[in-house]
Amino acid sequence: MSDFFRGRRLRRNAPMRELVREHDISARHLVMPYFVVETDDAGFRKPITSMPGIFQLSLAELEKDVAEAVALGMRSVILFGIPAAKDYKGSEAYNHDGIVQKAIRRLKERFPDLLVITDVCLCEYTSHGHCGLLRQGDTTGEVHNDPTLTLLAKAAVSHAEAGADIVAPSDMMDGRVLAIREALDANGFSHIPVMSYAVKYASAFYGPFREAAESTPQHGDRKTYQMDPANSREAMREAAADVAEGADFLIVKPAGPYMDIIRMVRDSFDLPVAAYQVSGEYSMIKAAAINDWIDGDKVAMESLTGLRRAGADIIISYLTVEMLRKKLVSA
């Protein structure tokens, strides 16, 4: 009788490894982010220099890209809008004919079975780049929490009216899940779930996104409302608050550097947990692969598998379409 563990027995060939594999990734686990731009140029397609392979897209180009991805098996998207004009209170975020609202209607008409999630925030729409209201002329970056809630709720309702399947508030204002939930219910949208960015850190990994969404703060930073990366207990308080306010999903963002938080959220709450593999995570993988420092496909798959192992039921990732195109994940 052997007196030591023979773990290699279950690793000796590919069929055996696949038989005992604990976590898998398929299209149903993945959500692809898209950046849609309000423009009269139907062919507008602008590369995001810090995110190779990702683009700002006109409505027509968005529809083309989504059509290709749906044919590959993509099931879910999350939309970010870039309006033609911005103002200090982010009016285009809750405009019935705003760019995201138009994109929702266009995608749902063409792809009725596609799950359309919308990012609910003001940062892409405000002239100052913050996620909430500032006093006009304010140069301190001090966001006023409670007045912002009304505008976030209006944006969420406008998305639901346009046909969004899920609204995802990313602003990190206190009380925004409750405000959105009550507004949705009051307007006949009690069936629309809220996917809360429950644990969103003030991270340096967002740099490329700010180019993509044109949402860099004009002054100050977001540390008064996004979380301190050093904190984990606070993450549990934030998640618990959102659960109590009526969240249906919980997002942890960023993903890779916060796998401990994903596991803590997974173990503490029974709601579906999403990990947002953010722009900086994507860009580091792509840059290293372009320079032949790593095998990009294998590192991409390993990064996604790690998030599933940490407890993520859903992964929002810019890698989604590429993984499907290369058949690295199943449709």
Results as ranks from 00 to 15, higher is better:
231 N>V: 12
249 F>M: 08
105 R>S: 12
195 M>R: 02
159 H>S: 14
278 V>R: 10
271 L>N: 09
88 Y>M: 07
169 P>Q: 14
315 I>R: 07
63 E>W: 00
29 H>D: 12
270 D>S: 03
19 L>G: 01
189 F>G: 11
82 I>G: 08
45 R>G: 05
121 C>Q: 14
283 S>D: 11
175 G>R: 13
266 R>K: 07
70 V>C: 00
41 D>R: 15
126 T>H: 04
222 R>F: 01
329 V>K: 01
155 A>P: 06
269 F>Q: 07
271 L>D: 00
221 D>G: 10
260 D>Y: 11
292 D>F: 06
310 A>T: 08
119 D>L: 01
101 Q>V: 13
56 Q>Y: 09
135 R>T: 09
55 F>I: 09
97 D>R: 13
331 A>Q: 15
65 D>V: 06
80 F>C: 00
156 A>I: 14
199 V>W: 00
216 T>K: 09
25 I>W: 08
1 M>A: 15
69 A>E: 00
28 R>Q: 11
294 I>K: 02
48 I>E: 02
57 L>M: 04
150 T>Q: 07
182 E>I: 00
123 C>Q: 13
271 L>Q: 06
122 L>K: 10
133 L>R: 03
260 D>Q: 06
72 L>N: 11
330 S>K: 12
241 A>H: 15
280 G>F: 05
191 H>T: 12
30 L>M: 01
62 L>W: 02
137 G>N: 01
299 V>R: 03
72 L>T: 13
54 I>F: 04
168 A>G: 14
288 A>T: 07
182 E>N: 08
200 K>G: 13
328 L>K: 03
274 A>P: 04
281 E>S: 05
54 I>P: 04
230 A>H: 13
203 S>C: 00
310 A>H: 10
152 L>D: 05
155 A>R: 10
224 T>Y: 15
99 I>G: 08
22 E>H: 05
245 E>H: 14
11 R>E: 09
199 V>Q: 02
192 I>G: 01
254 P>M: 01
246 G>L: 15
53 G>R: 02
148 T>Q: 07
165 D>F: 05
204 A>D: 13
105 R>P: 01
212 A>M: 04
300 A>I: 01
128 H>V: 12
290 I>S: 07
168 A>Q: 06
177 V>A: 14
207 G>N: 06
70 V>M: 05
247 A>F: 03
175 G>I: 02
64 K>W: 03
104 I>R: 13
240 A>P: 08
95 N>S: 08
262 I>K: 11
260 D>F: 05
197 Y>F: 14
272 P>Q: 01
250 L>K: 08
228 D>F: 03
126 T>A: 06
20 V>F: 13
65 D>C: 11
313 D>P: 10
288 A>F: 03
68 E>C: 09
131 C>E: 04
38 E>A: 15
207 G>K: 06
192 I>F: 02
54 I>S: 05
321 V>T: 15
142 E>G: 03
108 K>P: 11
231 N>S: 11
232 S>P: 04
112 P>I: 12
273 V>R: 04
20 V>H: 13
19 L>E: 07
326 K>C: 00
24 D>A: 04
240 A>C: 05
271 L>S: 03
291 N>Y: 11
21 R>S: 06
62 L>F: 06
232 S>T: 10
216 T>C: 09
236 M>Y: 05
224 T>Q: 15
